[in-house]
Amino acid sequence: MADVFVAASIRDISPGVKEFAFRPGLGAALRPYAPGSHIVIETAGKANAYSLTGDGTTADGYRISVRRQGDGGGSAWLHDRLRPGDTVRLSRPRSAFAPVATAKHHLYVAAGIGVTPILSHVRAALRWNRSFEVVYGYSAAGAPHLEDLQRLARGRLFEAEGGAQLAEVLTDRLRQQPVGTHAYACGPAGMMAVFRKLGGSLGWPEERLHVEHFAAPELEPGEPFTVRLASGRAVAVPGGTSALDALAEAGVPVPALCRQGVCGQCRVAVAAGTPEHRDLILTSREREANDCFYPCVSRAQTDELELEL
């Protein structure tokens, strides 16, 4: 569900990055959200997800920071076309990257524009007096929200310029964490791979390493299969067509946002059959359970997949 919001302010915060603040339009309302949440903005016929940077209380509206990427996409439209006073449609906040309530300590890791959900986590941690520290990697070309983190984290911020230094700092901080720590990372794919590899090599349980992806990689078309609904109806899913699209065409729409196996909106329970998991959300243990899948990207290892729809 999307509501109308008004662009309250727009400002440059670093080269190629702008911060956008939104206030509710007619009939819309601000809703509290979990740290690490995102909203989806409808721009010029497209829908893109952007992380909220506030602490979740919405005292100053919804705020996002967006790096301009190429031409013709959502970020270019926001940078080049949106002006204060213009209206846009925003989804309600949603999170697949919330802090773990039982964690004794939180290690937040950001690189580049991946700082946005981490900034939300830090602000919430300060509000609720949670134990935390931050590792922030950036390039000489720019470090969005660096001054904010320096002010907020005060002695708990570990900076790294460039990939090599980030790997060194991250290795050190992952080694130093007390028992009961959960680590959260957001940034480019390369950094995320290093984060997971280092965590695994240092003995971190997979369920204590949390990641927020920007987008999924390109996927192969996959083999055709059949989705069986709870009613017994069969829906064919051709190669190169997502189960999400096949279901929608058959009149069985499933709520979805990113359509890349990143946001978690389209999760569906599996009653029988074996999914071919292609999402970037499930842990290894969750994949082995084979009791759910994300139809926007995932397919089936078996000829038929029975869903609880």
Rank of each mutant, 00 (worst) to 15 (best):
C263H: 06
V252W: 06
G251R: 06
A269F: 00
D279C: 04
L257N: 07
A272M: 02
F293V: 08
D279H: 08
R267Q: 15
G273D: 04
G273V: 05
G261S: 08
Q265M: 15
R287K: 14
A272K: 07
A289R: 15
H277V: 10
C263R: 10
V297N: 07
S284M: 01
R267M: 14
P253H: 02
R299N: 07
Q301V: 04
I281W: 09
S284V: 06
R278D: 12
L282G: 01
G264E: 12
R259T: 08
H277C: 11
V252A: 01
I281M: 09
C258W: 01
G251V: 07
T274M: 13
H277Q: 14
C263P: 14
R259D: 05
G261C: 07
V268C: 12
Y294S: 03
S298M: 05
G251C: 02
V252K: 05
V270S: 02
V270C: 01
V252P: 00
E276P: 07
H277A: 08
Y294E: 03
P275D: 14
L282S: 05
V270D: 04
D291H: 13
P253W: 00
C292L: 04
S284K: 07
C266E: 09
V270Q: 02
R299H: 10
A256Y: 06
E276I: 02
G261T: 10
S298D: 06
C296N: 08
D279F: 04
A289Y: 08
I281H: 11
A272H: 00
C258D: 10
V252M: 00
N290R: 15
L257R: 08
R285Q: 15
R267I: 10
P295R: 13
T302H: 07
H277F: 11
F293K: 10
R278I: 12
P275S: 12
F293S: 05
Q301R: 15
D279N: 09
P255M: 04
A300M: 03
A289N: 10
C296R: 03
Q265W: 05
L280H: 14
E276Q: 14
Q265T: 15
P253M: 00
E276R: 13
A289K: 15
G273S: 04
I281F: 12
G273R: 08
E288T: 13
G261D: 08
G251I: 01
R299G: 09
R278H: 14
A256W: 01
Y294R: 04
R287S: 02
G264C: 11
V268T: 14
V270I: 02
L280C: 09
P255K: 12
Q265A: 13
L280P: 13
D291A: 07
R287H: 05
L282C: 03
A256Q: 09
R285C: 11
A272I: 03
C296P: 11
A271E: 15
Q260K: 08
P275L: 12
R267N: 15
I281V: 15
V252N: 03
G273E: 04
